[in-house]
Design a protein around this nucleic acid. Structure first.
Length: 270
DNA sequence: AAACATTCCTGCACGC
DNA sequence: TGCGTGCAGGAATGTT
């Protein structure tokens, strides 16, 4: 459930309140042996009695920092971490349970199992090859323009490429390009310096707004306490195929691009 | 019942 | 030629 950057960031923040630095694992229960990849064999042994030093987010990964190896969690398409209330019975697809010495109990639920839980810090294979964070100074117009140069892939597909920039998925890619006034199918090589600057500006703006709204809940995504995000109420184009553009009134178009449904206004976006 | 918020892998085409 | 890179397509899976 928390697929894109704002959702993972919101999960991280909601979890931080409940997991102060120094909290220790006291319970680790595996209800199956794998998600997208196998759980580490020694997960229980290595976690129990160790401390959570803090939580971090890199791209769409949630990181439990420890003195020992860090623990990574990726939520795939349908993963959630939720707090288990006292006496709460487990649900279908509660694959992993963590208990902590402050009484917090967490369940990782993931029907489709595209998520993963594995060891790994910033230098791990999971994180090593990733591009810059979109909210960092490294993601700037000059960088984006250079990355777009000579590439014939659609700008939307490139924006969703984690080697180029992380954290942008199918929802926010459409939203960003609408605000930037750029058609999603435009080849990267055709992006002008002015457009690159607009894309960078609106990427940062939309992601920040979405984080403030605690992400977008389409169906599964929830924060640790079960709350929904609110940013879905602010979508300008995503999931609005056939509806009127809020800016110009034209019908929002929808087409599959790079195997993902894509939404845009053919009048506002060039 | 086709679609789905993600990522990784394969295979082909192109260019040096 | 051979190699590296970019890009398209497919797969993993359960739910609605």
């Amino acid at each position: 459930m928390p697929p894109e950057l704002p959702e993972v960031e919101s999960v991280k923040r909601s979890l931080e309140e409940k997991l102060p630095s120094g909290t220790r694992w006291v319970e680790v229960i595996l209800n199956r042996k794998d998600l997208r990849v196998p759980f580490p064999k020694d997960l229980r042994k290595k976690l129990v009695n160790s401390e959570v030093l803090g939580l971090e987010r890199r791209a769409k990964y949630l990181i439990f920092k420890r003195k020992e190896k860090d623990l990574l969690s990726h939520l795939g398409m349908s993963g959630t971490w939720r707090e288990l209330k006292a006496g709460e019975t487990l649900k279908a697809h509660d694959h992993l349970i963590f208990g902590f010495d402050n009484g917090l109990r967490l369940a990782y639920n993931d029907p489709r199992r595209f998520g993963l839980v594995d060891w790994g810090g910033v230098d791990s294979p999971w994180l090593r090859e990733l591009g810059p964070e979109p909210l960092s100074a490294a993601f700037n117009p000059a960088y984006l323009l250079q990355q777009m140069k000579g590439r014939k892939a659609a700008v939307k597909v490139l924006l969703m490429n984690a080697h180029l920039v992380v954290g942008i998925g199918n929802i926010y890619a459409s939203e960003i390009l609408f605000l930037a006034g750029v058609k999603p199918a435009r080849p990267g090589s055709k992006i002008t310096p002015t457009e690159a600057a607009l894309i960078v500006k609106h990427t940062k703006a939309v992601l920040k707004k979405a984080i403030k709204a605690k992400g977008s809940t389409l169906k599964d995504y929830r924060m640790v306490n079960g709350d929904s995000g609110k940013f879905q109420n602010s979508f300008k184009v995503y999931s609005r195929g056939g509806e009127k553009c809020f800016s110009c009134g034209a019908a929002i178009r929808s087409e599959v691009l790079g195997q993902r449904s894509t939404y845009w206004c053919s009048r506002c976006q060039k």
